[in-house]
């Protein structure tokens, strides 16, 4: 088993004005990594690059120990389950048809597992795809990704369009999935609270740049939000904090916990706050 389920080294990719430059990250085996970023940050592009569905301009990517450009990567894909942000099966297919169809792609496809997941998600396997709601379509795609004994799941916005109950159930399934230490998950989402619940690692993409990639617990420990007055903010050196939010009566800054001056009270921060402060700081810097 490879130490890292995904290993990306210095990849670059550009099309039009969009550019991913010199991006490197690793997803250790047995872990869940959350990929966060605003619309157009490059999350879906990165997933396409990882799966060799898009060509890189430079750099190397290895997935489950296999170079994603090698011929052997096709058989490695048998161990990878993928869910894209837009479920893309043909409208006239029923769940049962998709079962037969996917069994032609995956060597370890389990119809029994697929149909039981559909039952668990309350998706009727005899209803045509176009008649399903967006959430139901997503559930069907997730069931398909979980039905072939994958070692790595790559999920692009799987929780979008799902109600909180199903989202919670999906998160449980993902945690259950990674109980086996050989299994890993890369999940992109806008819903940072979901990622905070389940992820071991967080990667934050902003305009094609990797702003941070670290263990979630380390991040939450490393950064703190400090409340202070406008005057106190003016007195703080600008390089001592990562981002600031000015309110009517008070201000908040995101700082590294180790840099907080004496006399200030630090508050527990959330992943969402860290991301928002960093994104705001980047926008203001431009």
């Amino acid at each position: 088993m490879a130490d890292n389920a995904i290993e990306i080294k210095n990849i670059s990719k550009s099309f039009g004005k969009f550019k991913i430059s010199d991006l490197s990250l690793s997803l250790p085996s047995g872990c869940i990594m959350g990929l966060i970023g605003e619309n157009g940050a490059g999350k879906s592009t990165l997933i396409r690059l990882i799966m060799n569905a898009s060509n890189t301009d430079s750099g190397e990517i290895s997935v489950l120990g296999a170079d994603n450009k090698s011929e052997g990567f096709i058989s490695t894909k048998d161990d990878i389950g993928v869910v894209l942000d837009m479920p893309c099966f043909a409208d006239n297919l029923k769940g049962r048809d998709i079962d037969r169809l996917m069994s032609g792609y995956y060597s370890r496809w389990s119809s029994e597992r697929f149909l039981s997941l559909l039952e668990r998600f309350e998706v009727d396997p005899d209803v045509r795809f176009y008649k399903l709601s967006k959430g139901m379509k997503m559930k069907l795609s997730i069931a398909a990704a979980l039905s072939h004994d994958a070692k790595l799941l790559i999920l692009d916005e799987p929780t979008s369009g799902l109600d909180p109950m199903v989202r919670d159930e999906l998160l449980d399934i993902l945690m259950e999935f990674t109980r086996d230490e050989e299994r890993s998950v890369l999940i992109s989402s806008h819903i940072t609270s979901d990622l905070e619940k389940i992820c071991d690692y967080i990667a934050f993409l902003h305009k094609g740049r990797l702003m941070l990639c670290d263990e979630k617990d380390m991040l939450l420990e490393r950064y703190s939000v400090v409340k202070l007055s406008g005057q106190q903010l003016d007195e703080l050196p600008k390089d001592s904090y990562i981002g600031a939010r000015k309110g009517k009566y008070s201000c908040e800054v995101l700082m590294e916990s180790s840099n907080i001056p004496e006399g200030f009270t630090k508050e527990h921060t959330t992943l969402e706050e860290i991301i928002l402060f960093m994104a705001r700081n980047e926008r203001e810097a431009v």
Binding site: I74, K77, I80, V82, M86, C88, A90, Y105, Y106
Partner: peptide, 18 residues
């Protein structure tokens, strides 16, 4: 054309098929 429109061609590139 249909595969391209609904994004199945991208999805298929991620499946174990040459």
């Amino acid at each position: 054309e249909r595969d391209n429109q609904r994004g199945f061609d991208t999805f298929e590139r991620m499946l174990p098929v040459s």
